[in-house]
Amino acid sequence: MARRHCFALDLVDDATLIADYEARHAPDSVWPVVLDHLRAQGVETMEIWRTGDRMMMIAEVADDYPRAVDAPTEIDDWEQLMWRYQRALPHAAPGEKWVPMQRIFAFGETR
């Protein structure tokens, strides 16, 4: 059964950079090696949502996520490219990009 993880990250507040970032995430624009690496780690589906310069990523992952897999060198290249557009949240650890979010409410579920 897949589990859901949500993460947050900010973009540099620049309309041109935000448009370029979105273009790099348009259908068939993300590098195939990046998508293959996500699948290898156990990511089954992923969505990124944006409002202003704030983003939220929702990932449905396998029970054994994250799987220990070697990252191709292109992954570092992709991450360096993405840092051009992204900026860490104020409370992120040094070098941390996507910060895990904590669910605080679930309509229709009892805990």
Rank of each mutant, 00 (worst) to 15 (best):
L81D: 09
M55R: 02
D10Q: 13
M56N: 13
E60I: 07
L81R: 14
M57Q: 04
V99A: 03
L35D: 11
W78A: 02
D64L: 03
A92T: 07
V33I: 15
Q86V: 00
E109F: 09
D10N: 15
P66V: 05
G95H: 00
A26Y: 03
W98A: 01
Y85G: 00
E74K: 03
D64R: 02
W98R: 01
A92S: 09
E96N: 02
W78I: 01
A93I: 08
A26V: 04
D14F: 04
A19M: 08
R24M: 10
A8R: 14
R84H: 01
E96C: 04
D20L: 12
R24F: 09
W83P: 02
L35F: 12
E47M: 09
V33T: 11
L11Y: 04
T73Q: 15
D77P: 06
P100D: 00
C6I: 15
G52M: 07
R50H: 00
L17Y: 04
A40I: 05
R87K: 05
L89Y: 06
V30A: 02
D70W: 11
D28W: 11
T16E: 15
I18E: 07
E79T: 11
T16S: 15
V12N: 01
E96D: 05
D14A: 06
V43W: 02
M55D: 07
L11N: 10
T110N: 15
L35R: 12
G95C: 04
A26R: 06
P100F: 00
D70R: 15
L89M: 08
W49Q: 05
A19T: 07
M55W: 05
I104P: 08
H37T: 14
D13M: 10
A2N: 12
E60D: 14
V12Q: 02
A19D: 06
L9P: 07
D70P: 08
I58S: 11
E44R: 14
R3E: 15
L89P: 08
E22L: 10
